[in-house]
Write a protein that binds this DNA or RNA. Structure first.
Length: 888
RNA sequence: GGGCGGCUAGCUCAGCUGGUUAGAGCGUCUCGUUUACACCGAGAAGGUCGGGGGUUCGAACCCCUCGCCGCCCA
C-alpha cells in the first residue's frame, strides 16, 4: 500500500540513479528513430544553480523527455563554460582574500593553474545540481569549452576566419575596463544613469580675438583634445572655422572645425573633440584627420602625453585638477548639474574608458547576413515569434565584434608575432613557425599573442563543437543541426546570434531549428532577483522543501510566453499538493484493486463512465501533446492539472466508487481496468514535467510480482485513436455532471443539511428520451456524488421540493420540511432575473436585421437556440415560483 | 530619442486567427471528517478587461489616441 504522501527526498536520488544507470539518458541506438537534439546553454563551470537555470533546464528536460518517450533518438548535450572574465574574477578575489599577491605577480602559468584547481574543486557542483532537478542530459557527452576538442575547434575557426579576412587586427577605440585592464565588447557594457555636471570651459582663440566655450561632462579628457567642432551652418561660429584655439593647461593650438556632429542646440553649440577617448569624437577625428592623443593608461591614469603635473593621476583626480586649474585660469564659464548615462563594465562595475588599442575584431556584418536570412526564411524560428524583431534589430545594425581580451583564463589567440611584428596565424605553434620560416627564409623566434578570446567566441561554436566538429563524427552527422535551443532573451545577442553566424558559416546549416526564449524569473513582488537585494530563491532549497517535481511543475505552469515569472512559495506549495492529489488517486486505485490488466483494450469498454473517461483521456493526450509540440509549456501544465485533478479525481474517481461498491461484477472489473489504464496514461503524460513522482508511482502501482519491463522514462508516449472520442457518452455524463453541480449549488444555497439525502426528482412529464435514460442509467452515480436519495420521475415538482434546471431538464430535490421558503423564493427570483437578462440580450441581437443579415448562419442559429433554452428555463422557474407563492 | 513588451477578479496570470454567461490558481467567506487525499471535499462572493475615440451586425481581442509600468538599444 502506498504511503499517504510521496517522499521526494528519499525517492529522488534513488530514481535519478536508476535512470542514469539504465542508460536512458543516451539517445536510442535505433537507426530508425528520428533524431531530436538540444545543447544546454552551458552554465559557468564554477557557478551554482540559480532559479533561472532551474527554469531553463526544466523546460529543456520536459522537451527531451517528451521526445524520448515518443521514441526519438533524444540527445541533450550538457556541459559548462569556462566563463573567462567571470571565473578569472572569482579566482582573483580568492587570491586577494587570502592576502595573496595579484595575478600579475603570480605569473600567467601559475595563475592559470590556480584557476584549473578552482575548476576542479567547484566544477562539479552545478552539474550535480542539474541532477537534483532531474535533468536527463547525456552525461557521457558532457563537454567543457576548454576541452581539447573544443579548443581545437576554436583555433580552427579563428584561423579560417583570419584567412577569409573576417578576423583582423586593428587599432581602434575599444571599451576598456580599467578594473580588469581588458577590452570588452559593446554587449558587456551597460549604461548607468549617474549624477554629474556639465562644465563649461572657455578656450581662448589663438589670435587673442576672444574665446569659444565648450561644455563637457568629462573635463579631464580635454588634455587629449585635438579640435573644437561647430556645426557648419551655425552662424554664431561661421567666422571662426579654420581658426585655432589654444588649449588651456596644455597650451597646444587646436583647430576649430566644421562638423555636423556639433549640435547647435546643445550647450554653446561648440563641442570639444577628443578622438582618443570618445566614440563620437573618434569618428569626427577620422573625418578630419585629427591627431589622436591618448592621455590615459590601462588603469585609466593620466599618462605622459599630458602635462607633468597630471601624470599618474587617476582619471577622477585628474578631473578635479582640470576644473581647479581652469578655474584658476579664469576660464570656467559655468557648472550645471546633470544626470547622464555613463558606460560601465557589466562585470567590474567601473566606468569603462573608450581607449585606443590594438585588438582582434570579427567582421560581424558579413557573418550576420546569412544568419539574418535564415530567420527571415523561417529556417530557424523564434518562439515566441516577436523575439525575431529583437534579433533582426541587432543583427541589422551589427558592429565589428572585439574578440580579444587581456585576460589569462580562456582560449589563447593562435597568433604569433615575428621580431618585426609580422603576424602568423596558425592552429599550432609549429604551424606558425613554419609560416615564419617561409616568410623570413629562416627560423625566427616567435612570440604568441598574450590575449585570450572572448568567452562567447567558443560559446558561439557550442552546438557543433560539442558534437565533435571539425571531425566528421557520427554525432555531428546525426544530431546537427540541433532541434531546439531553450534560452533567455538576455543572451540573444551574446549567444544566439553568434551561434547562428558561426554555425551557418562553418557548417552551412543553422545550428538549431527553433529557439525558445524563456521568461525571466522575478520574486513575488516583481523585482529581479539579486544577491544584494536578498530576494533570491535557491532552487535547491525549494527542491528540499517541496520536491523537484513541485518546482518543475510550477516553473512549467508559469512559463507563459514572453513574460516575467513571479515566483512565490505559495504557488510551489500548490503544485506540491497537486502531486499529493495524484498520489492519493493512485492510492485509491491501488486500494480498489485497479491494476493494469493484461490485454485490456480500452476500445472495448461498454460502461458509459468508462467510455466517457476514455474520450476525456483522448482529449487530454491531444492537448498535452499539441502543447508540448508547440513549446506551450503553460498550456501543457494547465491541461495536465485540469485533467488529473478536475476530471480524473473530482469526477471519474467519484463515479467509480458506486460502481466498484456495486453488484455488477462485469462493470466492476471493467472500471478497475479502465481506472488503471487512465492512471497509467496520466503517469506517462505527466512524466516529462514531473518525472520523479510519476516514475515512483509507475513502479509502486505495478501489480504484485510483475515488475515493469521498462522504466517510465522510456515508456512510449500515449497515442490514442481518434475513434475513441465518444460524443454520446460525453453528452450523457455531461448531463449527470450538470445535474450534480446544479443540485449541489441549490443544496448549499438553501442550507439543506449536509447529512440529508433528499430524493432527486425528474420533474417533467416527458423529458427528452435520451436525457431521461441518461439520468436513469446513472442514478447510482448521481446519488453518490450529489448525496441524494432515490431518483424519481414525476409529472411536476411536488410541493416542498426545490426545483432547478440542468442541461435543459427540470429537476428537483425533495426536501420537504427542510427548505427555507424565503431563501428559495429569492433563489428563484435571482435565477429568473439571470435568464431574463440573457433573453433580453439575445433577443435584442436577434432583433437586429444587420445581425441576421451579416453574421454567419451558425452564429445566428446558436443564438436562436440559446434564446429558446433561456425562455423555456425562465418559464419553468416562473411556474415554480408562482406555485411557491400560493403555498407559502 | 528609437524599439519591444505589458496594463483582465484582492494577488499572480489564461483568454489562439473578433461571436464565451470573460476563466484558473492562490487568497476571502459559508458549509463539511462521505473509508484516496484536510497537502482534502462542496458551495459562494468578487471584474464598466488602464482612459477616450473609431472600425464592425458584434471588440478584452482590430485601428487611432492618451496615460501609466517594465525591458532593450542609443
Amino acid at each position: 500500500m502506498l504511503d499517504k504522501t510521496f517522499d521526494p527526498a528519499a525517492a529522488e536520488p534513488r530514481l535519478y540513479r536508476q535512470w542514469e544507470e539504465s542508460g536512458a539518458f543516451a539517445p536510442t541506438e535505433d537507426p530508425a528513430a528520428a533524431p531530436f537534439s538540444m545543447v544546454i546553454p552551458p552554465p559557468n563551470v564554477t557557478g551554482s544553480l540559480h532559479i533561472g537555470h532551474a527554469l531553463n533546464n526544466t523546460l529543456q528536460d520536459v522537451l527531451i523527455r517528451f521526445a524520448r518517450m515518443r521514441g526519438m533518438a533524444a540527445l541533450w548535450v550538457p556541459g559548462t563554460d569556462h566563463a573567462g572574465i567571470a571565473t578569472q574574477m572569482v579566482v582573483e578575489r580568492q587570491l586577494a582574500a587570502e592576502g595573496n599577491i595579484g595575478r600579475r605577480d603570480l605569473g600567467r602559468e601559475a595563475f592559470v593553474e590556480r584557476v584549473w584547481e578552482w575548476k576542479a574543486q567547484s566544477g562539479g557542483a552545478i552539474v550535480n545540481q542539474l541532477r537534483r532537478l532531474g535533468a536527463s542530459c547525456d552525461w557521457s557527452r558532457e563537454r567543457f569549452t576548454l576541452d581539447p576538442g573544443l579548443s581545437a575547434a576554436v583555433r580552427k575557426v579563428f584561423v579560417t576566419l583570419y584567412r577569409e579576412k573576417l578576423i583582423y587586427r586593428d587599432k581602434r577605440l575599444v571599451n576598456w575596463d580599467p578594473h580588469f585592464q581588458t577590452a570588452i565588447s559593446d554587449l558587456e557594457v551597460e549604461q548607468r544613469e549617474v549624477d554629474g555636471h556639465y562644465w563649461h570651459l572657455a578656450y581662448p582663440l589663438e589670435d587673442g580675438s576672444g574665446e569659444i566655450v565648450v561644455a563637457t561632462t568629462r573635463p579631464e579628457t580635454m588634455l587629449g583634445d585635438t579640435a573644437v567642432a561647430v556645426h557648419p551652418s551655425d552662424e554664431r561660429y561661421k567666422h571662426l572655422i579654420g581658426k585655432c584655439v589654444r588649449l588651456p593647461i596644455v597650451g597646444r593650438p587646436i583647430p576649430i572645425i566644421a562638423d555636423e556632429y556639433a549640435d547647435p542646440e546643445k550647450g554653446s553649440g561648440a563641442v570639444k573633440i577628443t578622438p582618443a577617448h570618445d566614440f563620437n569624437d573618434f569618428k569626427v577625428g577620422q573625418r578630419h584627420h585629427l591627431p589622436m592623443i591618448n592621455v590615459l593608461d590601462a588603469y585609466a591614469r593620466v599618462n605622459d602625453n599630458a602635462p607633468p603635473g597630471y601624470r599618474g593621476l587617476d582619471r577622477f583626480a585628474a578631473r578635479k585638477k582640470v576644473i581647479a586649474d581652469i578655474e584658476a585660469l579664469g576660464l570656467l564659464r559655468g557648472v550645471e548639474p546633470t544626470r547622464h548615462a555613463v558606460p560601465h563594465g557589466d562585470r567590474s562595475g567601473v566606468a569603462v574608458e573608450p581607449w585606443l588599442t590594438d585588438q582582434w575584431w570579427v567582421d560581424a556584418k558579413v557573418l550576420a547576413a546569412p544568419a539574418i536570412g535564415a530567420v527571415e526564411t523561417g529556417e530557424t524560428v523564434f518562439e515566441p515569434r516577436h523575439w525575431e524583431k529583437t534579433y533582426f534589430e541587432w543583427m541589422r545594425n551589427i558592429e565589428p565584434w572585439c574578440v580579444s581580451r587581456q585576460l589569462w583564463w580562456g582560449h589563447r589567440i593562435p597568433a604569433w608575432y615575428g621580431p618585426d611584428g609580422h603576424i602568423f596565424v596558425a592552429e599550432t605553434a609549429e604551424g606558425a613557425a613554419a609560416q615564419a620560416r617561409e616568410h623570413y627564409g629562416r627560423d625566427e623566434p616567435l612570440r604568441q599573442d598574450e590575449d585570450v578570446l572572448d568567452t562567447w567566441f567558443s560559446s558561439a561554436l557550442w552546438p557543433f563543437s560539442t558534437l565533435g566538429w571539425p571531425e566528421p563524427t557520427e554525432d555531428l552527422k546525426r544530431f546537427y543541426p540541433t532541434h531546439t535551443l531553450v534560452t533567455g532573451f538576455d543572451i540573444i545577442f551574446f549567444w544566439v546570434a553568434r551561434m547562428m553566424m558561426m554555425g551557418i558559416h562553418f557548417t552551412g546549416k543553422v545550428p538549431f531549428r527553433r529557439v525558445f526564449i524563456n521568461a525571466l524569473i522575478r520574486d513575488a513582488e516583481g523585482a529581479k532577483m539579486s544577491k544584494s537585494k536578498g530576494n533570491v530563491m535557491d532552487p535547491l532549497e525549494l527542491v528540499d522543501v517541496y520536491g523537484a517535481d513541485a518546482l518543475r511543475f510550477t516553473l512549467t505552469a508559469m512559463s507563459g510566453q514572453g513574460r516575467d515569472i513571479r515566483l512565490s512559495k505559495q504557488r510551489i506549495e500548490g503544485y506540491r499538493n497537486f502531486g499529493t492529489k495524484l498520489w492519493n488517486a493512485a492510492r485509491f486505485c491501488q486500494m480498489n484493486g485497479a491494476v493494469a490488466v493484461e490485454g485490456f483494450d480500452p476500445a472495448a469498454v461498454t460502461h458509459v463512465v468508462n467510455r466517457w473517461v476514455r474520450g476525456e483521456t483522448l482529449k487530454a493526450v491531444r492537448e498535452v501533446t499539441a502543447a508540448l509540440d508547440a513549446c506551450a509549456f503553460d498550456d501543457a501544465a494547465g491541461a495536465l492539472y485540469r485533467f488529473i485533478w478536475n476530471l480524473f479525481c473530482d469526477w471519474f474517481v467519484e463515479f467509480a466508487k458506486p460502481i466498484l461498491n456495486g453488484e455488477d461484477d462485469a462493470a466492476k472489473a471493467e472500471t478497475r481496468a479502465t481506472a488503471a489504464w487512465v492512471l497509467e496514461t496520466i503517469l506517462k503524460l505527466l512524466h516529462p514535467v514531473a518525472p520523479f513522482i510519476t516514475e515512483e508511482l509507475w513502479a509502486q502501482i505495478a501489480p504484485e510480482g510483475r515488475p515493469r519491463e521498462r522504466l517510465l522514462i522510456v515508456e512510449a508516449w500515449p497515442e490514442l485513436p481518434d475513434t475513441w472520442a465518444d460524443p454520446a457518452a460525453e453528452a450523457e455524463i455531461g448531463l449527470v455532471i450538470a445535474a450534480v453541480t446544479e443540485g449541489r449549488s441549490v443544496r448549499a444555497e438553501l442550507n439543506v443539511p449536509p447529512g440529508a439525502r433528499p430524493d432527486l426528482i425528474v420533474a417533467e412529464a416527458s423529458p427528452a428520451q435520451a436525457q431521461a435514460q441518461a439520468l436513469r442509467a446513472n442514478a447510482q452515480v448521481i446519488a453518490h456524488t450529489l448525496r441524494s436519495g432515490a431518483l424519481r420521475f414525476e409529472d411536476a415538482v411536488p410541493e416542498g421540493a426545490i426545483a432547478f434546471v440542468a442541461g435543459g431538464v427540470a429537476l428537483a430535490l425533495d426536501v420537504k420540511g427542510l427548505i427555507d421558503l424565503p431563501a428559495e423564493r429569492a433563489r428563484l427570483a435571482k435565477e429568473i432575473a439571470t435568464q431574463a437578462s440573457d433573453i433580453d440580450r439575445t433577443a435584442r441581437k436577434l432583433g437586429n436585421a444587420d445581425f441576421i443579415g451579416r453574421a454567419p448562419p451558425e452564429v445566428v442559429e446558436e443564438n436562436r437556440e440559446r434564446l429558446a433554452a433561456a425562455e423555456q428555463a425562465k418559464a419553468r422557474l416562473q411556474a415554480i415560483l408562482a406555485r411557491l407563492e400560493t403555498v407559502g
